[in-house]
């Protein structure tokens, strides 16, 4: 996946995690789109999917902890978006295990995920950065 500096929100931990998430989603997509033999591909898709899914949880937890620490006013709404996304990934993981390997199904899911994640990072998450940085600036001024 292509990372752009414009996607940064200005909070180092979050920006680093976003880049790692892009990397893991990129690996998943690359595996989904590879023309390896089906039995090999099935296993690798599951592996990269789980590897990404784990990090989604790690990152969302860390980002939400920061939102709470800085009393981010959009916390509830953002938390809801994260929960819905995690549920969607979990549902896909389950369906994937049951269907084994349905090419169209996996391609559709990963395509949507690509656009969704870029928009979430490049647009939805930007408010968090603005909020945290304004809190830090205010704290420094009152010191």
């Amino acid at each position: 996946m292509i990372w752009r500096d414009e996607y940064k929100i200005g909070v180092e931990l979050v920006d680093k995690q976003h880049q790692e998430l892009f990397k893991r989603l990129g690996n998943f997509i690359q595996t989904v789109r590879s023309d390896k033999e089906e039995s090999v591909k099935k296993k690798e898709v599951e592996k990269t999917l789980n590897f990404m899914g784990e990090y989604v949880a790690t990152h969302f937890d860390a980002e939400e902890a920061l939102q709470k620490k800085y009393n981010y006013p959009g916390f509830e709404n953002h938390h809801q978006i994260h929960e819905e996304f995690k549920a969607e990934v979990a549902e896909f993981q389950q369906e994937y295990r049951e269907n084994k390997f349905d090419e169209d199904f996996v391609m559709e899911f990963s395509g949507r995920l690509l656009t969704w994640l870029i928009n979430h990072v490049a647009s939805t998450d930007q408010d968090i950065g603005e909020h945290i940085n304004s809190v830090i600036e205010n704290e420094e001024e009152t010191k």
Binding site: M107, L114, T115, N119
Partner: peptide, 24 residues
């Protein structure tokens, strides 16, 4: 431009990514 990978056909991956763009 989003994926950094070469796309050759309007496959399900491409149309689904574009569909989500329209949705956003």
């Amino acid at each position: 431009a989003m994926s950094g990978m070469e796309m050759k056909e309007l496959d399900k991956f491409v149309t689904s990514a574009m569909g989500e763009l329209g949705n956003i």
